[in-house]
């Protein structure tokens, strides 16, 4: 019984009967996915920014390496 309980608790997708009516499998899976992503994100440091960019609207520095400084011969 103890082993069974532990096994069920380790699963991210238990059934309603095993986890109780208040805990649904879909919520469990979604929470587990979010937790896994967030856990890794919190330990992931982008090499240049020393942290994750804030997303859209992030204040960006001027481009140092101007990709258009010289026109390619092929263009």
């Amino acid at each position: 019984m103890i082993a069974t309980k532990i096994l069920r608790e380790k699963s991210v997708r238990g059934t309603a009967s095993s986890l109780g009516a208040a805990s649904k499998p879909k919520t469990k899976v979604a929470d587990s996915i979010k937790h896994s992503v967030e856990k890794n994100k919190s330990t992931m440091k982008h090499w240049m920014n020393n942290g994750l960019p804030c997303g859209k609207g992030t204040e960006r520095p001027g481009i140092i390496y101007n990709l258009r400084k010289r026109k390619s011969k092929l263009l």
Binding site: H46, M48, T58, R60, P61, I64, L67
Partner: peptide, 22 residues
């Protein structure tokens, strides 16, 4: 996604060509 200064820059490959766009 490596350099936040170039998040809107992308590259494609096809045939013997590599192209960089913005």
């Amino acid at each position: 996604f490596i350099d936040s200064r170039y998040f809107n820059v992308f590259a494609t490959v096809g045939g013997n060509r590599v192209t960089v766009y913005q």
